[in-house]
Amino acid sequence: MLVSEREQLRANIERQVKEFGNDRSALIPVLQDVQHKYGHVSEYVMQVVADILHIHPVEVYGVASFYSFIGHKQKGRFIIRLCRTISCDMQGKDRVARQLENDLGIQFGETTPDGNFTLEWANCLGMCDQGPALLVNERIYTKVTPETVHDILEECRTLFGVYALQEKETLCELPTPVK
C-alpha cells in the first residue's frame, strides 16, 4: 500500500472511531464497523485501531480472531455461511453443502477466483426449526435444498447485482492486505 493510501485509510478509521469513543470498550463496535465498511479488518487497520484506542495491536488481533464474523483477509463480495450445527446437520446440510461446492467450484473456506463468493461454515444461526439454514452476508435463508441453492446464487448475481456494484464503489477504498 502506498503511504498516501495508508494515511487516507488512517484518517477514515480515525473518523469512524470517534463515533464510538476512544476507549478499549469501543473495540468491538469499531471492529464491526470496519468489517461492515471494508469487508475485512486488515493487519494494518488493526494496528491503527489499537493506536487510537491506546491498546496493544495483539489484543485487537486476539479479539478479531475470536469472532468468525470478523476476518483479517479480504473475502468475496458475498459470504455464504452454511450452518453446520446438529439440527441443520440432521435436516440435510451435507447435500446443500455439496451443491454449493459444485455450483461455485470451490471448497468451504475458499473464495471464487472472480472474488464474488466465499463459502464458510457457521454454527447455529438460531433457525433450527427451519433448517438447513444459511446466511448470505446479512440475509438469512431457511429450509434450503439443493434445488434452491441455484436460485439463491442467481439471486445474488442479479438481485444483488446493483448492490454489488455500489458495494464496489466503497470497495475501492479497500486496503489491500499488508505485506
Binding site: 494496528q47 496493544h56 495483539v58 486476539g62 480472531s65 475470536f66
Partner: peptide, 25 residues
C-alpha cells in the same frame, strides 16, 4: 506481557480447541 510489562506481544488466537498463544499475525 500485556499488563505487567505493557509491551503487548502475546495474545490468544481463535477460541476453544483452536486456541493458541500467538504474536501479532
Amino acid at each position: 506481557c500485556i499488563d505487567l510489562q505493557e509491551v503487548g506481544v502475546l495474545e490468544v488466537d481463535k477460541r476453544s480447541d483452536q486456541s493458541k498463544v500467538i504474536t501479532f499475525g
